[in-house]
Design a protein around this nucleic acid. Structure first.
Lengths: 359, 359
DNA sequence: GGCTCTTTGATTGACGTACGTCATTCCTGC
DNA sequence: GCAGGAATGACGTACGTCAATCAAAGAGCC
């Protein structure tokens, strides 16, 4: 039998009320008594029944996901994972709200953030670039007691509680090793494409990429990054010209998550399969590119895991409970055709959503 | 406000008792009435509060992990993940018991399995080779209503509910692609080492490996598997002789999880870093081998994820609830030095070990 | 001793669900 | 129209915790 608060009370020789005060950090208990209670808790191995506690407390976790309104494949994948997780969360008294902000408007974002406490939100998962306005908004939210996690893109100089995502510099290093080793011997050039070099992720990935390239593959010359800003035509022209100019280009590293333009471009140039192509994020398009051989490897993070981890961490933080770091660590995954995870139908849909209690 | 059973009752125009009967599949409700209740549930969007339900039901999930008593690094890692998960599980009214069986004694295993229902176990995670005795034991457990998942090593011809682990054939294919691509151009030979080719995993990995090698790297000759049976001396002699005989050996694929003997052997032969070395399972030793460059890549599954997934699935199965396949899918991870996940201290630590049963 | 002020005890009613008992109502076949 | 069984209702208790109340006991001070 699991020990309960009653057992603590008996064991410590105090009343239930006192145990409750100790358990919930309420005032009105002498230090000595509190210690005796703690000791009893330790002795009998009491573990608070969170379920019962939440039931009694009538607690509902109202959590917000704040994402840019960009319509990229990656964001779409993230949203998919979010809706899936939403179904499960219902069983955990968690209520997820979604907020989108204009990608280039930090002030709009700050406004949205500021409005969250009014809406009863107790935790926020935020994917946004770090700007002074955002820093201030986060500080203000923290002061109001909200938990904040940075999602995918870290906000290291803010007071966020936690970061859910990967080390992009290490991701860049990983990409470099794969590029270097997949290229057959001999000197070569590698092109680097990016949506925008203003994003912290892109910069970090490029940094890690160069780091490894210089150290381990001195024979490979890495060209400057091209910023495509999502413009397929620009990319097409640039890639065509560069390939024509440097016949010894052996690989392309795509820093961002938009692989579609690149693969169609290579296709139209008739170069599919001839170059080592490595990119980021396992979007549906990247998946087909891997299957067809148009891409050689994708460096990715498990979006479902990212979302669930953010939810777990936010719940834990609002409860001031512990988090299991080993579970919350997001891995830098290398995906090639051979270890492509099976693609699954989108979410539980009709199934009885209850009974899937998992953190 | 979240709708409750009372709301269903009101909405459907029936009593609480009837709602309860419908919700819990109890007899005594006309099909028509049941349908009306279901309809009401759908209409008001009722989600059962599993926490409250489990509280009321006094349900405790008593789950058993049944593992061979082998003292390999992999098993040790698995046990570590299990203790970690045990601490968390205490909060989910889950009580994990551990049973070890003599690795080569299927009858002892059957005995242990048969004794589980007596011990109040309602779900079993089993890692064992498939033998007729085991098949029978599993069938008998299923008939008694226990949920069974196969762990790491599948039991496809049994009545297990679920398999938690990776597709080893795909893992072998992945290893082959990495080996082939990491080897610089030109013909070469590859050695294959294995603890025992009797294990289903080894066979499947080898199959996948050969598949890809033949199709995509015809210039590479793969030598027959050597079974080392955990004997370092045997391995040492064989590797030494083979390397001497075939100077064009470019890589070694180690099918099993024991990498220590291999790397020390290569070290003593002065060949560390000269060959492409690829193995399985991210044990502490594999980790240092990656860091030092003694190994080039490790194909692995996230053991923490495996354990947590097994627990989730077992809980869901005993509740006859749905499982979120996308969350339960175990990925075939490729780990190289650059994307090595940070190693973390072993678990929450402070908790009392009694909280996790016999672990 | 009389006065606050703090600490502790005792008790109670939720929270949403399960599950049992017992009584009542509804069908169905004759 | 009636018996007999099936279907449904009404109700109570329990689960472990929270939160609030009120009373009692103790400590510190003049």
């Amino acid at each position: 039998m699991r020990p309960t608060v009653n057992d603590i009370a008996r064991e410590a020789g105090v009343s239930l009320a006192t145990v409750d005060r100790v358990l919930n950090d309420r005032p009105g208990v002498r230090a000595k008594t509190a210690e005796a209670v703690q000791e009893a808790i330790r002795r009998i191995g009491y573990v608070r029944d969170v379920a019962a506690a939440n039931l009694a407390r009538q607690r509902d976790y109202r959590l917000a996901f704040v994402l840019p309104d960009t319509d990229s494949q990656f964001i779409r994948t993230l949203l998919g994972a979010l809706t899936d997780a939403g179904h499960l969360s219902a069983a955990l008294r968690t209520d997820v709200v979604l907020r989108r902000f204009p990608a280039e408007d930090p002030h709009a974002l700050a406004g949205i953030l500021a409005a969250l406490p009014e809406a009863g939100v107790v935790g926020v998962a935020l994917m946004a670039p770090e700007t002074p306005v955002v820093r201030d908004a986060i500080r203000s939210l923290r002061q109001k007691g909200l938990a904040i996690v940075a999602l995918v893109s870290d906000l290291p100089n803010t007071e966020r509680d936690h970061f859910v995502g990967i080390d992009n510099r290490a991701a860049g290093r990983t990409a470099a090793v794969l590029t270097g080793r997949f290229l057959r011997a001999g000197p070569a050039r590698v092109m680097v494409l990016s949506d925008s070099m203003l994003l912290r992720e892109s910069i970090e990935r490029r940094l890690g990429f160069d780091e490894v390239m210089q150290a381990r593959f001195p024979g490979i010359e890495v060209l400057p990054s091209l910023e495509t800003h999502g413009q397929g035509a620009l990319l097409h022209d640039f890639v065509g010209q560069t390939l024509a100019r440097y016949p010894d280009i052996g690989g392309i590293y795509s820093l961002g998550s938009g692989q579609r333009a690149l693969t169609t471009c290579l296709d139209s140039l008739g170069r599919t399969g001839q170059l080592v192509v490595i990119g980021h994020e396992l979007t549906p398009h990247a998946r087909t590119a891997l299957e067809s051989g148009a891409m050689d490897a994708v460096i990715t993070q498990n979006v479902g895991h990212v979302v669930r981890s953010a939810l777990r961490v936010l719940r834990a933080k609002t409860d001031r409970g512990p988090i299991d770091l080993s579970q919350e660590q997001i891995r830098i995954e290398i995906v090639i055709r051979e270890n492509l995870p099976a693609s699954l139908p989108p979410g539980p849909g009709t199934g009885r959503p209850e009974a899937c209690g998992e953190i």
